[in-house]
């Protein structure tokens, strides 16, 4: 009986951790050396895609704590100024949680459009924070633009995977 209870609790815990784990896996997949010319220099920011998607569709399972932890892990793994990604993700989540009506549209096109604005603001914020914390000259805006385009382009595929997982685990 106790074992059943434990397994039930474990099951609930694992299910609630799925959004966090899947975004973490995306981040880890992103830093695997691809060795494809042109792709290694600019990467999509999976943490922003993941934080946006799960904050919109499963806000109860993707809290500020999850966003903060993912940001910190990303900073450590990417060797970025500590706190830069956490602050960016927390800001993204704050906007989504406070304007839920704007983002709770069923149409994929509208969600993607909303993502394009959020992502743009998030990248600019991250760029400013890193430039201030690193005490170096601001990095190239063209690279930032490529990162933005690539992140936007990767959103549909990532959202498709997230939706499959969401349907599989939560319905």
């Amino acid at each position: 009986m106790e074992a059943d209870q434990f397994l039930d609790k474990l099951n609930i815990w694992l299910r609630s951790a799925i959004p966090f784990i899947i975004v973490l896996l995306f981040i880890l997949f992103g830093i695997s050396p691809t060795k494809v010319s042109g792709l290694v220099e600019v990467l999509p920011i999976y943490s922003i895609i993941g934080a946006y998607y799960w904050s919109v569709y499963k806000p109860d399972l993707f809290s500020y704590g999850s966003g903060f932890s993912l940001g910190l892990i990303e900073d450590i793994l990417f060797g970025l100024a500590l706190g830069s990604s956490s602050l960016t993700i927390l800001t993204v989540q704050w906007v989504i949680f406070n304007q839920q009506k704007l983002f709770s549209d069923d149409s994929f096109k509208n969600t993607w459009l909303a993502f394009s604005f959020i992502c743009f603001a998030a990248l600019i914020l991250k760029w400013v924070i890193i430039s201030i914390l690193s005490e170096t000259s601001f990095s190239s805006l063209i690279d930032l633009l490529f990162t933005y385009i690539l992140t936007l382009a990767f959103y549909p595929l990532s959202a498709w995977v997230f939706t499959k997982v969401r349907n599989l685990v939560f319905t």
Binding site: I31, F78, G79, K126, W127, I130, S140, F146, T147
Partner: peptide
Amino acid sequence: VVADTGGAFAQSII
């Protein structure tokens, strides 16, 4: 090389 953390913000490998 086990990880390549490229991107617009930092260029490093692990």
